[in-house]
Design a protein around this nucleic acid. Structure first.
Lengths: 127, 127
DNA sequence: TATATGTTCTATATGATATAGAACAATGAG
DNA sequence: CTCATTGTTCTATATCATATAGAACATATA
């Protein structure tokens, strides 16, 4: 079972928080390809949010190719496919994030150190 | 002189676009510490946006410590100070960005390659 | 058939975004 | 000193995103 929480006081939209936590569970290896997510109404009950909000998170993940609808109308984790578009998206975001870090005085060493640490912490293989 | 453009059709708020372009100019070395930004009313005229919108971007950058008000009521580029909080902020963002990349199937090699490329492209020293 | 589940539609409330105008305080130029 | 410049603050309005809510529908499983 997946443990997900949301912060109603955060400035980050609820559906985004849900989406990002699911992504976190995938990279942590707690959600593996083929496993299914809880029904939106059930997930909504646990998180104490409206089921439309959970649905929106699921729709995002589906549009991003991270989950897909399968038999029984359940969303299941997709097998990851490294696509050129995903590479471009990552590069675009990374460009902005690194620009901000550099502007704030971090140097290449600081940045490399943090990136390596995150890769070490998060790296998991998907079948 | 700094060349900045905004896209009125983008989903990214205008004041964010302005803020990010200024950050880009700083890391590109086109804006150096001590140099001043155009008055908000002038910048607004060039960008064809309201001057309150430019003001909001300037306020963001001021709150982030990237610019400061100096004599003549002009905003000037600050000298970068690498603070622990900035390191933490970067790590928080990087954690989420890398999680998404990994979830989409990119591997550590892909990520390192793109990060290194961005550092190579953007790295500039600030006095 | 009956239940579960995602989907679609309408509706409402709140906050963020963007524009706008007016007035004020502090600063530098003349 | 006087005046224009510039950032700041206030009110106001319009639009869009977010979040909740309820209802009805289609499909798949039991």
């Amino acid at each position: 079972m997946v443990l997900i929480t949301v912060d109603h006081n955060s400035k980050i939209p609820l559906y985004r928080q849900i989406r990002e936590q699911i992504i976190r569970e995938i990279t942590a290896g707690n959600l593996k390809p083929g496993e299914s997510l809880p029904p939106s109404r059930l997930m909504a009950g646990m998180l104490e949010v409206n089921f439309h909000t959970v649905n929106r998170a699921y729709e995002c993940l589906r549009d991003e190719g991270l989950i897909k609808l399968s038999r029984g109308k359940k969303y299941t984790i997709s097998s990851a496919v490294r696509s050129p578009k995903d590479m471009e998206d990552f590069e675009t975001i990374e460009r902005a994030v690194i620009a901000e870090a550099l502007a704030k005085g971090l140097d290449a060493t600081d940045i490399m150190q943090i990136v390596k640490k995150q890769l070490r912490t998060q790296k998991h293989v998907r079948s």
